[in-house]
């Protein structure tokens, strides 16, 4: 009876988060084939530890912590070098927000983002995958999990300043990718620069 009550409570908390958790893993994992295994392990571990969860506290952050940990472990176990990942020195050189503020093509992108975004679903997915794992995690926790900086810092066990700089870097990187994509496919309206 106690176990049944525990699983019912757990499922009640978990159900509204299934979509975000799935999307988070789908984006973060190197191999999407392992999605089911990772989710299964994460849910099993979270359920095992559910007795330690204090009702009324942040279940979303709690389950995301389990899921993130499982996904990162899986990625480490099946480690592959990310061909498109930025090198650290490249990241450092471009990480300041104002590095791309004056790029003319970015201005074009900002004026008509739909012209590019409507054509590059897969490209955005690749752009996210091309970030370092740590940057991906910050970006996805923010975008998919709707977490605030403080919550992301707690989940990833990093200072809040690190979250801020990583998130800013991800945004710069994604914008650069979109500009490149738009330029390559002639999607920008050059006449309006």
């Amino acid at each position: 009876m106690k176990d049944r009550d525990k699983s019912e409570r757990f499922l009640r908390h978990l159900e509204p988060l299934q979509g975000p958790l799935e999307a988070y893993c789908r984006r973060l994992l190197h191999e999407v084939d392992s999605l089911e295994d990772v989710l299964q392990s994460a849910v099993a571990n979270a359920f095992r530890d559910f007795d330690q969860y204090a009702e009324g506290t942040n279940f979303r952050a709690w389950i995301f912590k389990h899921t993130h940990s499982e996904a990162m472990n899986w990625n480490r176990k099946h480690q592959r070098t990310q061909a498109a990942a930025l090198r650290e020195d490249e990241v450092a050189a471009k990480e300041t927000w104002d590095a791309i503020l004056d790029e003319p093509l970015l201005k074009v992108l900002l004026e008509a983002p739909g012209a590019v975004l409507d054509h590059c679903d897969a490209s955005i997915a690749l752009a996210v995958k091309s970030l370092s794992l740590e940057d991906q995690a910050v970006s996805l926790l923010h975008v998919v999990g709707d977490f605030k900086y403080r919550e992301i810092a707690d989940i990833l066990h990093v200072p809040i300043g690190t979250v801020m700089s990583r998130l800013a870097r991800c945004r710069v990187r994604l914008r650069q990718r979109l500009v490149e994509y738009g330029e390559r496919h002639g999607l920008h309206r050059h006449g309006e620069i």
């Binding site: 975000p20 789908r26 975004l117 975008v143």
Partner: peptide
Amino acid sequence: MLVENIAVR
């Protein structure tokens, strides 16, 4: 728009 694209939930 980026968030909408990335966050299929």
